[in-house]
Design a binder for these strands. Structure first.
Lengths: 231, 231
DNA sequence: TCTTAATCGTGAAATTAAGCACGTTAAAAA
DNA sequence: TTTTTAACGTGCTTAATTTCACGATTAAGA
């Protein structure tokens, strides 16, 4: 008789299970980064205590987070470092690379194209698009810049699933519409604007000003406090 | 008799009040962006209903968020657009510009230097630093690139409070130490690594891979679901 | 072999955030 | 002037997230 010890939340088998909460997913890259560091240090096993300690998290939180993975730890020993790395990568879909299109060959777009690390995050930017004739035809970090008008057709033909928007805010909605038309399934939006997108297309907004808001408000509050206490 | 109608959470006056929760602060830039758009459309008053609607949020959430501000709305009318903009900017400390140092003149650093919008977010990058002799002395988007060794001294002399780390992960901790030594009060870290920093220095990590983790896991989960349902 | 100690997995408690509901208020309409 | 309506502010409810606590398990040492 088959005995399912754990409810699989990851694909592999069985019914579609609970969605992994966003806060959990957002912690995964941090674990991964620390684990890779442990691996280069030659460590083969690591406990949640040590791993969470390095990241400033509660050990119980790490243990709970890892219940979303297809891996289980051993008492007294912890988790196998490489096994845990693989489990996280598999959970995030970072174990096989997906092609992506990037739109906007400005400074942000160029920076994203220049970042080699995306490969390790399951992302391969295969083409860039822009409307500026001065940029079209050039090559940035080995990636061709093509006219935006070709996006939808190429996306369909190449079965690209992910689009990255790195344009000014004013152009973002138009680009998003083209991406939807091209059948892309997920959009990573760096433009500081909210997009309207049909629900079957995933969107994640990357807005630097959100983090900056936290930083600058806290700094200001701390300043105000000091002023109040001292002189 | 003095009647304090509202507890001020913002500076202005009185006791140090409750810290504004991070989720609230992270929504503020979104409000701001929508409000600026409304302003260019000529709107003078806006209700939470309409504002939240544009951003896909619950109106009550917006109202609750605005209790952290030094502004109050009018029934039937809502909030004055420019007043609300000012109140949010003041809350975040974006109403007066702060100088910042940036370390790392690679592609990410150049992109950040090239982004003109930081001025509107209270941030003015006054100098960049690097260790690469090929970059030192050059000028990027009008900003001088200086040797990293000068950071601490200049930070003290110029009373710079904010540091931006845009280096590879391997160099980040060393740069952070220099920033602490230079008396910086807040660090915006773009390197994918966790820093150890004394508690009197604020740190916010900007890690693109966190958002990417959410996007790619969701995409993968959706794919798995489709495969299960259809063929 | 037996004891000790570190860690796992997990249910329960606490904390935090989001959504709802309702009394109050001000503008506009009757 | 009175009525109607849209929206505010806020206490209460619900949901989500984190932390605590503890029994179970396994490696290592006595």
């Amino acid at each position: 008789m088959t005995s399912p010890r754990h409810v699989r939340r990851t694909p592999a088998g069985a019914a579609a299970a609970q969605a992994i909460p966003v806060p959990v997913l957002r912690r995964m890259p941090g674990y991964l980064q620390a684990l890779r560091q442990f691996r280069t240090e030659g460590l083969e096993w690591v406990s949640c205590t040590r791993l969470a300690g390095r990241l400033g998290l509660d050990p119980a939180l790490a243990r709970k987070d890892f219940t979303a993975l297809d891996i289980t730890g051993k008492p007294k020993t912890g988790f196998p470092v490489t096994g845990l790395i693989r489990a996280i990568e598999s959970c995030l879909g970072w174990d096989n690379v997906r092609d992506a299109f990037l739109v906007g060959a400005g400074s942000l777009g160029r920076a994203l194209l220049g970042y080699r690390g995306f490969r390790e995050h399951g992302l391969n930017i295969v083409a860039a698009f822009d409307t500026d004739p001065g940029k079209i035809g050039s090559s940035l970090h080995g990636t061709q810049v093509l006219p935006l008008s070709k996006l939808a057709g190429l996306a369909r033909r190449m079965r690209v699933a992910i689009g990255i928007i790195a344009t000014p805010a004013a152009a973002a909605q138009e680009v998003a519409d083209l991406m939807v038309a091209g059948g892309l399934r997920a959009i990573w939006n760096f433009a500081p604007t909210s997009l309207s997108i049909p629900p079957e297309v995933l969107v994640e907004n990357e807005d630097l000003s959100r983090t900056l808001a936290v930083l600058s408000q806290r700094l200001q509050a701390r300043r105000a406090l000091e002023l109040e206490e001292n002189g």
